[in-house]
Design a protein around this nucleic acid. Structure first.
Lengths: 210, 210
DNA sequence: CCCGAACCTGAGCAAGCGCTTAGGGCTTGT
DNA sequence: ACAAGCCCTAAGCGCTTGCTCAGGTTCGGG
Protein backbone atom coordinates (compact mmCIF):
# COMPACT_ATOMS: atom_id res chain seq x y z
CA UNK A 1 0.00 0.00 0.00
CA UNK A 2 2.82 2.37 0.88
CA UNK A 3 5.59 2.91 -1.64
CA UNK A 4 9.21 3.18 -0.51
CA UNK A 5 9.33 6.84 -1.55
CA UNK A 6 6.61 7.76 0.93
CA UNK A 7 9.00 8.24 3.81
CA UNK A 8 6.81 10.12 6.22
CA UNK A 9 9.60 10.51 8.72
CA UNK A 10 11.92 12.59 6.57
CA UNK A 11 13.99 15.49 7.80
CA UNK A 12 13.27 17.88 4.93
CA UNK A 13 9.73 19.19 5.26
CA UNK A 14 7.55 18.64 2.20
CA UNK A 15 10.42 16.77 0.57
CA UNK A 16 7.97 14.44 -1.14
CA UNK A 17 6.26 17.27 -3.00
CA UNK A 18 7.66 17.67 -6.50
CA UNK A 19 8.48 19.51 -8.65
CA UNK A 20 10.13 22.28 -6.71
CA UNK A 21 7.66 24.90 -7.98
CA UNK A 22 4.77 22.89 -6.55
CA UNK A 23 6.58 22.65 -3.23
CA UNK A 24 7.12 26.41 -3.16
CA UNK A 25 3.42 26.96 -3.76
CA UNK A 26 2.50 24.45 -1.08
CA UNK A 27 4.78 26.04 1.49
CA UNK A 28 3.33 29.44 0.63
CA UNK A 29 -0.15 28.01 1.08
CA UNK A 30 0.73 26.59 4.49
CA UNK A 31 1.92 30.00 5.64
CA UNK A 32 -1.11 31.79 4.27
CA UNK A 33 -3.64 29.28 5.58
CA UNK A 34 -2.03 29.29 9.01
CA UNK A 35 -2.00 33.07 9.14
CA UNK A 36 -5.43 33.96 7.82
CA UNK A 37 -7.33 30.67 7.52
CA UNK A 38 -8.28 28.79 4.37
CA UNK A 39 -11.32 30.82 3.38
CA UNK A 40 -9.66 34.17 3.97
CA UNK A 41 -6.71 33.21 1.79
CA UNK A 42 -6.86 33.96 -1.92
CA UNK A 43 -5.15 32.01 -4.65
CA UNK A 44 -3.53 35.27 -5.69
CA UNK A 45 -2.01 35.58 -2.22
CA UNK A 46 -0.58 32.07 -2.34
CA UNK A 47 0.87 32.55 -5.81
CA UNK A 48 2.26 35.93 -4.80
CA UNK A 49 4.07 34.51 -1.78
CA UNK A 50 5.60 31.85 -4.04
CA UNK A 51 6.69 34.56 -6.49
CA UNK A 52 4.41 33.40 -9.27
CA UNK A 53 1.35 34.54 -11.15
CA UNK A 54 -2.09 33.36 -9.99
CA UNK A 55 -2.42 31.06 -12.99
CA UNK A 56 0.74 29.12 -12.12
CA UNK A 57 -1.05 27.54 -9.20
CA UNK A 58 -3.40 25.64 -11.49
CA UNK A 59 -0.59 23.95 -13.36
CA UNK A 60 0.41 22.07 -10.22
CA UNK A 61 -2.90 21.77 -8.38
CA UNK A 62 -6.38 21.26 -9.74
CA UNK A 63 -8.08 23.47 -7.16
CA UNK A 64 -7.36 25.48 -4.04
CA UNK A 65 -9.01 22.69 -2.06
CA UNK A 66 -6.57 20.14 -3.46
CA UNK A 67 -3.75 22.22 -1.99
CA UNK A 68 -5.37 22.05 1.42
CA UNK A 69 -5.94 18.34 1.03
CA UNK A 70 -2.31 17.60 0.24
CA UNK A 71 -1.14 19.71 3.18
CA UNK A 72 -3.63 18.10 5.50
CA UNK A 73 -2.86 14.55 4.39
CA UNK A 74 0.92 14.86 4.56
CA UNK A 75 0.66 16.71 7.86
CA UNK A 76 -1.56 14.10 9.43
CA UNK A 77 0.70 11.32 8.21
CA UNK A 78 3.71 13.01 9.74
CA UNK A 79 2.00 13.57 13.07
CA UNK A 80 0.75 10.01 13.14
CA UNK A 81 4.20 8.72 12.26
CA UNK A 82 5.70 10.63 15.18
CA UNK A 83 3.10 9.19 17.52
CA UNK A 84 3.45 5.64 16.20
CA UNK A 85 7.23 5.64 16.45
CA UNK A 86 7.16 6.49 20.13
CA UNK A 87 4.27 4.15 20.86
CA UNK A 88 6.10 1.15 19.38
CA UNK A 89 9.23 1.54 21.50
CA UNK A 90 10.06 -0.84 24.30
CA UNK A 91 9.39 0.19 27.87
CA UNK A 92 6.65 0.68 30.40
CA UNK A 93 3.33 2.22 29.43
CA UNK A 94 4.34 5.35 31.30
CA UNK A 95 7.57 5.64 29.34
CA UNK A 96 5.77 5.12 26.05
CA UNK A 97 2.97 7.54 26.90
CA UNK A 98 5.42 10.20 28.01
CA UNK A 99 7.50 9.68 24.87
CA UNK A 100 4.48 9.86 22.61
CA UNK A 101 3.16 13.04 24.21
CA UNK A 102 6.59 14.63 24.25
CA UNK A 103 7.18 14.00 20.55
CA UNK A 104 3.65 14.75 19.45
CA UNK A 105 3.62 18.04 21.33
CA UNK A 106 7.09 18.95 20.11
CA UNK A 107 5.93 18.34 16.56
CA UNK A 108 2.90 20.59 17.05
CA UNK A 109 5.08 23.34 18.51
CA UNK A 110 7.95 23.12 16.05
CA UNK A 111 5.68 22.81 13.04
CA UNK A 112 2.95 24.98 14.50
CA UNK A 113 2.27 26.66 11.17
CA UNK A 114 1.57 23.35 9.48
CA UNK A 115 -0.16 21.96 12.54
CA UNK A 116 -2.57 24.86 12.67
CA UNK A 117 -3.71 24.15 9.14
CA UNK A 118 -3.82 20.41 9.77
CA UNK A 119 -5.84 20.68 12.96
CA UNK A 120 -8.12 23.63 12.36
CA UNK A 121 -9.01 23.66 8.68
CA UNK A 122 -10.63 20.23 8.45
CA UNK A 123 -14.05 21.69 7.75
CA UNK A 124 -12.80 23.42 4.63
CA UNK A 125 -12.08 20.08 2.99
CA UNK A 126 -14.58 18.54 0.60
CA UNK A 127 -16.75 15.66 1.73
CA UNK A 128 -14.55 12.82 0.41
CA UNK A 129 -11.26 14.33 1.43
CA UNK A 130 -12.54 15.05 4.90
CA UNK A 131 -13.65 11.48 5.57
CA UNK A 132 -10.24 10.29 4.37
CA UNK A 133 -8.50 12.59 6.84
CA UNK A 134 -10.86 11.73 9.68
CA UNK A 135 -9.81 8.09 9.28
CA UNK A 136 -6.19 9.12 9.88
CA UNK A 137 -7.25 11.01 13.01
CA UNK A 138 -9.02 7.97 14.40
CA UNK A 139 -5.76 6.09 14.16
CA UNK A 140 -4.06 8.69 16.38
CA UNK A 141 -6.82 8.21 18.88
CA UNK A 142 -6.39 4.43 18.78
CA UNK A 143 -2.65 4.70 19.42
CA UNK A 144 -3.06 6.77 22.57
CA UNK A 145 -5.99 4.73 23.80
CA UNK A 146 -3.97 1.53 23.44
CA UNK A 147 -1.08 2.82 25.53
CA UNK A 148 -3.38 4.08 28.27
CA UNK A 149 -5.36 0.83 28.19
CA UNK A 150 -2.18 -1.21 28.58
CA UNK A 151 -1.06 0.98 31.46
CA UNK A 152 -4.34 0.36 33.22
CA UNK A 153 -4.19 -3.38 32.53
CA UNK A 154 -0.68 -3.62 33.97
CA UNK A 155 -1.65 -1.62 37.05
CA UNK A 156 0.66 1.25 36.12
CA UNK A 157 -2.12 3.78 35.61
CA UNK A 158 -5.23 4.72 37.52
CA UNK A 159 -7.76 5.85 34.93
CA UNK A 160 -11.51 5.55 35.59
CA UNK A 161 -12.51 6.64 32.06
CA UNK A 162 -10.06 5.50 29.37
CA UNK A 163 -11.85 6.90 26.28
CA UNK A 164 -12.48 10.21 28.03
CA UNK A 165 -8.91 10.54 29.21
CA UNK A 166 -7.63 9.63 25.75
CA UNK A 167 -9.77 12.39 24.30
CA UNK A 168 -8.46 14.89 26.83
CA UNK A 169 -4.82 13.95 26.25
CA UNK A 170 -5.09 14.32 22.50
CA UNK A 171 -7.10 17.51 22.86
CA UNK A 172 -4.41 18.97 25.09
CA UNK A 173 -1.67 18.10 22.60
CA UNK A 174 -3.54 19.32 19.53
CA UNK A 175 -4.39 22.66 21.08
CA UNK A 176 -0.69 23.45 21.27
CA UNK A 177 -0.93 24.33 17.59
CA UNK A 178 -3.40 27.09 18.44
CA UNK A 179 -1.52 28.93 21.17
CA UNK A 180 2.12 28.14 20.49
CA UNK A 181 4.08 31.14 19.36
CA UNK A 182 7.62 30.98 18.03
CA UNK A 183 8.41 34.35 19.64
CA UNK A 184 7.13 33.10 22.98
CA UNK A 185 9.33 32.23 25.90
CA UNK A 186 9.02 28.44 25.66
CA UNK A 187 10.89 26.17 23.29
CA UNK A 188 9.12 23.19 21.71
CA UNK A 189 11.28 20.89 23.83
CA UNK A 190 10.22 22.59 27.04
CA UNK A 191 6.55 22.39 26.16
CA UNK A 192 6.93 18.72 25.25
CA UNK A 193 8.57 17.99 28.59
CA UNK A 194 5.96 19.92 30.56
CA UNK A 195 3.09 18.22 28.78
CA UNK A 196 4.56 14.73 29.14
CA UNK A 197 4.69 15.32 32.87
CA UNK A 198 1.15 16.68 33.01
CA UNK A 199 -0.22 13.73 31.08
CA UNK A 200 1.49 11.21 33.37
CA UNK A 201 -0.25 12.96 36.25
CA UNK A 202 -3.58 12.77 34.42
CA UNK A 203 -3.34 9.00 34.10
CA UNK A 204 -2.16 8.63 37.67
CA UNK A 205 1.15 7.03 36.71
CA UNK A 206 2.59 5.46 39.84
CA UNK A 207 6.11 6.75 39.40
CA UNK A 208 7.76 9.21 37.05
CA UNK A 209 10.01 7.15 34.76
CA UNK A 210 13.71 7.88 34.21
CA UNK B 1 -17.08 48.98 36.89
CA UNK B 2 -20.08 46.91 35.83
CA UNK B 3 -23.47 48.55 35.34
CA UNK B 4 -26.60 46.85 36.65
CA UNK B 5 -27.87 46.18 33.14
CA UNK B 6 -24.75 44.24 32.26
CA UNK B 7 -26.03 41.03 33.80
CA UNK B 8 -23.62 38.60 32.23
CA UNK B 9 -25.00 35.68 34.15
CA UNK B 10 -28.51 35.69 32.70
CA UNK B 11 -30.53 32.62 31.90
CA UNK B 12 -31.83 33.77 28.52
CA UNK B 13 -29.00 33.68 26.00
CA UNK B 14 -28.42 36.92 24.13
CA UNK B 15 -31.11 38.53 26.26
CA UNK B 16 -29.20 41.81 26.24
CA UNK B 17 -29.36 42.13 22.46
CA UNK B 18 -32.26 44.29 21.35
CA UNK B 19 -34.43 44.74 19.38
CA UNK B 20 -35.68 41.24 18.79
CA UNK B 21 -34.85 41.37 15.07
CA UNK B 22 -31.22 42.12 15.87
CA UNK B 23 -31.16 39.18 18.29
CA UNK B 24 -32.56 36.86 15.62
CA UNK B 25 -29.84 37.96 13.23
CA UNK B 26 -27.18 37.50 15.87
CA UNK B 27 -28.35 34.01 16.76
CA UNK B 28 -28.41 33.11 13.07
CA UNK B 29 -24.88 34.45 12.75
CA UNK B 30 -23.67 32.36 15.69
CA UNK B 31 -25.04 29.22 14.06
CA UNK B 32 -23.59 30.05 10.67
CA UNK B 33 -20.18 31.09 12.00
CA UNK B 34 -19.94 27.97 14.16
CA UNK B 35 -20.91 25.72 11.27
CA UNK B 36 -18.85 27.14 8.44
CA UNK B 37 -16.53 29.69 9.99
CA UNK B 38 -16.67 33.47 9.73
CA UNK B 39 -15.08 33.88 6.32
CA UNK B 40 -17.09 31.09 4.72
CA UNK B 41 -20.35 32.60 5.92
CA UNK B 42 -22.12 35.12 3.72
CA UNK B 43 -24.32 37.94 4.91
CA UNK B 44 -27.05 36.46 2.69
CA UNK B 45 -26.81 33.20 4.61
CA UNK B 46 -27.15 34.95 7.96
CA UNK B 47 -30.08 37.04 6.82
CA UNK B 48 -31.71 33.98 5.25
CA UNK B 49 -31.48 31.98 8.45
CA UNK B 50 -33.11 34.87 10.30
CA UNK B 51 -35.86 35.01 7.68
CA UNK B 52 -34.91 38.42 6.36
CA UNK B 53 -33.49 40.00 3.27
CA UNK B 54 -29.73 40.63 3.07
CA UNK B 55 -30.26 44.36 3.44
CA UNK B 56 -32.01 43.99 6.81
CA UNK B 57 -28.72 43.01 8.41
CA UNK B 58 -27.28 46.46 7.84
CA UNK B 59 -30.08 48.21 9.69
CA UNK B 60 -28.99 46.55 12.94
CA UNK B 61 -25.25 46.09 12.39
CA UNK B 62 -22.81 48.33 10.59
CA UNK B 63 -20.75 45.47 9.16
CA UNK B 64 -20.44 41.72 9.24
CA UNK B 65 -17.41 42.15 11.48
CA UNK B 66 -19.48 44.08 14.03
CA UNK B 67 -21.74 41.05 14.32
CA UNK B 68 -18.73 38.87 15.13
CA UNK B 69 -17.46 41.42 17.60
CA UNK B 70 -20.71 41.54 19.55
CA UNK B 71 -20.89 37.74 19.64
CA UNK B 72 -17.28 37.47 20.71
CA UNK B 73 -17.53 40.14 23.38
CA UNK B 74 -20.72 38.87 24.99
CA UNK B 75 -19.46 35.30 24.79
CA UNK B 76 -16.15 36.11 26.43
CA UNK B 77 -17.91 38.06 29.16
CA UNK B 78 -20.19 35.13 29.88
CA UNK B 79 -17.35 32.64 30.00
CA UNK B 80 -15.32 34.92 32.23
CA UNK B 81 -18.32 35.44 34.50
CA UNK B 82 -18.73 31.69 34.90
CA UNK B 83 -15.06 31.33 35.78
CA UNK B 84 -15.06 34.29 38.18
CA UNK B 85 -18.13 33.12 40.04
CA UNK B 86 -16.59 29.77 40.87
CA UNK B 87 -13.20 31.24 41.65
CA UNK B 88 -14.65 33.63 44.23
CA UNK B 89 -16.43 30.95 46.26
CA UNK B 90 -15.21 29.89 49.68
CA UNK B 91 -13.29 26.68 50.03
CA UNK B 92 -9.92 25.10 49.42
CA UNK B 93 -7.96 25.84 46.27
CA UNK B 94 -8.75 22.33 45.05
CA UNK B 95 -12.47 22.91 45.50
CA UNK B 96 -12.34 26.24 43.73
CA UNK B 97 -10.19 24.93 40.88
CA UNK B 98 -12.45 21.93 40.40
CA UNK B 99 -15.54 24.13 40.46
CA UNK B 100 -14.08 26.60 38.00
CA UNK B 101 -13.02 23.89 35.56
CA UNK B 102 -16.33 22.05 35.93
CA UNK B 103 -18.38 25.17 35.16
CA UNK B 104 -16.08 26.52 32.49
CA UNK B 105 -16.05 23.20 30.66
CA UNK B 106 -19.78 22.75 31.06
CA UNK B 107 -20.30 26.18 29.54
CA UNK B 108 -18.09 25.31 26.57
CA UNK B 109 -19.97 22.05 26.03
CA UNK B 110 -23.49 23.36 26.52
CA UNK B 111 -22.89 26.49 24.48
CA UNK B 112 -20.46 24.83 22.10
CA UNK B 113 -21.88 26.67 19.11
CA UNK B 114 -21.21 30.04 20.67
CA UNK B 115 -17.97 28.86 22.21
CA UNK B 116 -16.61 27.73 18.87
CA UNK B 117 -17.10 31.21 17.45
CA UNK B 118 -15.74 32.83 20.59
CA UNK B 119 -12.61 30.70 20.75
CA UNK B 120 -11.74 30.08 17.13
CA UNK B 121 -12.71 33.18 15.17
CA UNK B 122 -10.54 35.71 17.01
CA UNK B 123 -8.35 36.31 13.96
CA UNK B 124 -11.31 37.46 11.93
CA UNK B 125 -11.80 40.46 14.20
CA UNK B 126 -10.39 43.84 13.25
CA UNK B 127 -7.28 45.13 14.95
CA UNK B 128 -8.99 47.22 17.66
CA UNK B 129 -11.72 44.74 18.44
CA UNK B 130 -9.21 41.91 18.70
CA UNK B 131 -7.03 43.68 21.25
CA UNK B 132 -10.15 44.44 23.28
CA UNK B 133 -11.08 40.75 23.32
CA UNK B 134 -7.54 39.62 24.05
CA UNK B 135 -7.67 41.72 27.22
CA UNK B 136 -10.71 39.75 28.36
CA UNK B 137 -8.88 36.50 27.69
CA UNK B 138 -5.93 37.57 29.82
CA UNK B 139 -8.32 37.99 32.72
CA UNK B 140 -9.40 34.34 32.39
CA UNK B 141 -5.77 33.35 32.51
CA UNK B 142 -5.21 35.45 35.62
CA UNK B 143 -8.15 33.85 37.42
CA UNK B 144 -6.89 30.31 36.90
CA UNK B 145 -3.31 31.24 37.65
CA UNK B 146 -4.35 32.82 40.93
CA UNK B 147 -6.17 29.71 42.14
CA UNK B 148 -3.29 27.44 41.21
CA UNK B 149 -0.81 29.84 42.80
CA UNK B 150 -2.78 29.86 46.04
CA UNK B 151 -2.97 26.08 46.03
CA UNK B 152 0.79 25.89 45.71
CA UNK B 153 1.31 28.50 48.43
CA UNK B 154 -0.93 26.60 50.84
CA UNK B 155 0.79 23.31 50.09
CA UNK B 156 -2.33 21.83 48.54
CA UNK B 157 -0.88 21.52 45.05
CA UNK B 158 2.42 20.29 43.67
CA UNK B 159 3.05 22.34 40.54
CA UNK B 160 6.62 22.95 39.30
CA UNK B 161 5.55 25.35 36.53
CA UNK B 162 2.53 27.49 37.46
CA UNK B 163 2.25 29.58 34.26
CA UNK B 164 2.73 26.50 32.10
CA UNK B 165 0.16 24.47 33.97
CA UNK B 166 -2.29 27.37 33.86
CA UNK B 167 -1.86 27.51 30.11
CA UNK B 168 -2.44 23.78 29.80
CA UNK B 169 -5.55 23.82 31.99
CA UNK B 170 -7.16 26.63 30.01
CA UNK B 171 -6.11 25.07 26.74
CA UNK B 172 -7.74 21.79 27.75
CA UNK B 173 -10.99 23.53 28.68
CA UNK B 174 -11.15 25.73 25.59
CA UNK B 175 -10.57 22.85 23.20
CA UNK B 176 -13.83 21.29 24.40
CA UNK B 177 -15.56 23.75 22.09
CA UNK B 178 -13.79 22.17 19.12
CA UNK B 179 -14.59 18.51 19.68
CA UNK B 180 -17.78 18.54 21.71
CA UNK B 181 -20.75 17.23 19.80
CA UNK B 182 -24.31 17.45 21.05
CA UNK B 183 -25.12 14.09 19.43
CA UNK B 184 -22.14 12.49 21.18
CA UNK B 185 -22.40 10.13 24.09
CA UNK B 186 -21.29 12.53 26.81
CA UNK B 187 -23.39 15.21 28.48
CA UNK B 188 -21.86 18.57 29.36
CA UNK B 189 -22.11 17.64 33.03
CA UNK B 190 -20.16 14.44 32.52
CA UNK B 191 -17.42 16.19 30.61
CA UNK B 192 -17.21 18.88 33.29
CA UNK B 193 -16.87 16.25 36.00
CA UNK B 194 -14.23 14.29 34.07
CA UNK B 195 -12.20 17.40 33.35
CA UNK B 196 -12.37 18.70 36.92
CA UNK B 197 -10.90 15.40 38.05
CA UNK B 198 -8.18 15.43 35.40
CA UNK B 199 -7.15 18.98 36.29
CA UNK B 200 -6.90 18.14 39.98
CA UNK B 201 -4.55 15.35 39.00
CA UNK B 202 -2.52 17.75 36.84
CA UNK B 203 -1.90 20.06 39.78
CA UNK B 204 -1.14 17.15 42.10
CA UNK B 205 -3.97 17.96 44.50
CA UNK B 206 -3.32 16.06 47.69
CA UNK B 207 -6.82 14.73 48.13
CA UNK B 208 -9.93 14.77 45.99
CA UNK B 209 -12.34 17.18 47.68
CA UNK B 210 -15.92 16.25 48.61
C1' DC C 1 -57.11 61.15 9.33
C1' DC C 2 -52.42 62.12 8.70
C1' DC C 3 -47.58 62.32 10.31
C1' DG C 4 -43.11 60.73 11.38
C1' DA C 5 -40.35 57.17 13.01
C1' DA C 6 -38.96 52.46 12.90
C1' DC C 7 -38.24 48.59 10.16
C1' DC C 8 -37.75 46.03 6.11
C1' DT C 9 -37.34 44.77 0.88
C1' DG C 10 -35.92 44.57 -4.28
C1' DA C 11 -32.62 45.74 -7.08
C1' DG C 12 -28.14 46.40 -7.87
C1' DC C 13 -23.11 48.35 -7.61
C1' DA C 14 -18.12 47.92 -7.37
C1' DA C 15 -14.78 44.85 -6.08
C1' DG C 16 -12.78 40.61 -5.53
C1' DC C 17 -13.12 35.66 -6.01
C1' DG C 18 -11.64 30.85 -8.15
C1' DC C 19 -10.40 29.40 -12.24
C1' DT C 20 -9.52 29.22 -17.69
C1' DT C 21 -7.36 30.09 -21.95
C1' DA C 22 -4.11 31.51 -25.50
C1' DG C 23 0.30 32.03 -26.09
C1' DG C 24 5.40 32.83 -25.19
C1' DG C 25 9.91 31.70 -23.67
C1' DC C 26 13.01 27.94 -21.65
C1' DT C 27 15.38 23.54 -21.80
C1' DT C 28 16.34 19.18 -23.95
C1' DG C 29 17.15 15.47 -27.37
C1' DT C 30 18.36 14.83 -31.98
C1' DA D 1 19.20 24.12 -36.15
C1' DC D 2 14.86 22.72 -34.76
C1' DA D 3 10.84 20.63 -32.81
C1' DA D 4 8.65 18.90 -28.53
C1' DG D 5 7.44 19.47 -24.03
C1' DC D 6 7.38 21.81 -19.79
C1' DC D 7 6.55 25.90 -17.06
C1' DC D 8 4.91 30.12 -16.67
C1' DT D 9 2.23 34.76 -17.62
C1' DA D 10 -1.31 38.34 -19.22
C1' DA D 11 -5.74 38.88 -19.70
C1' DG D 12 -10.07 38.08 -18.46
C1' DC D 13 -14.67 35.30 -17.71
C1' DG D 14 -18.53 34.34 -14.91
C1' DC D 15 -19.88 34.58 -10.46
C1' DT D 16 -20.32 35.88 -5.60
C1' DT D 17 -19.18 38.97 -2.14
C1' DG D 18 -20.08 42.87 1.38
C1' DC D 19 -22.67 46.55 1.27
C1' DT D 20 -26.01 50.63 -0.41
C1' DC D 21 -30.16 53.04 -1.50
C1' DA D 22 -34.67 54.42 -2.90
C1' DG D 23 -38.94 53.20 -1.69
C1' DG D 24 -42.74 50.57 0.71
C1' DT D 25 -45.15 48.86 4.98
C1' DT D 26 -46.54 49.12 9.78
C1' DC D 27 -47.81 51.47 13.86
C1' DG D 28 -48.46 54.69 17.90
C1' DG D 29 -49.66 59.56 18.95
C1' DG D 30 -52.07 63.99 17.78
Amino acid sequence: MCAAEETTGEDTPWGEVTPEAARRLLVAAVDAFAERGYHATTTRDIAGRAGMSPAALYIHFKTKEELLHRISKIGHERALYVLDTEADRDGTAAERLAGAVRSFVRWHAERHTTARVVQYELDALGEEHRTEIVALRRRSDAVVRRIIGEGVRDGEFDVPDVPGTTLAVLSLCIDVARWFNAQGSRTPDEVGELYADLVLRMVGARQIPR
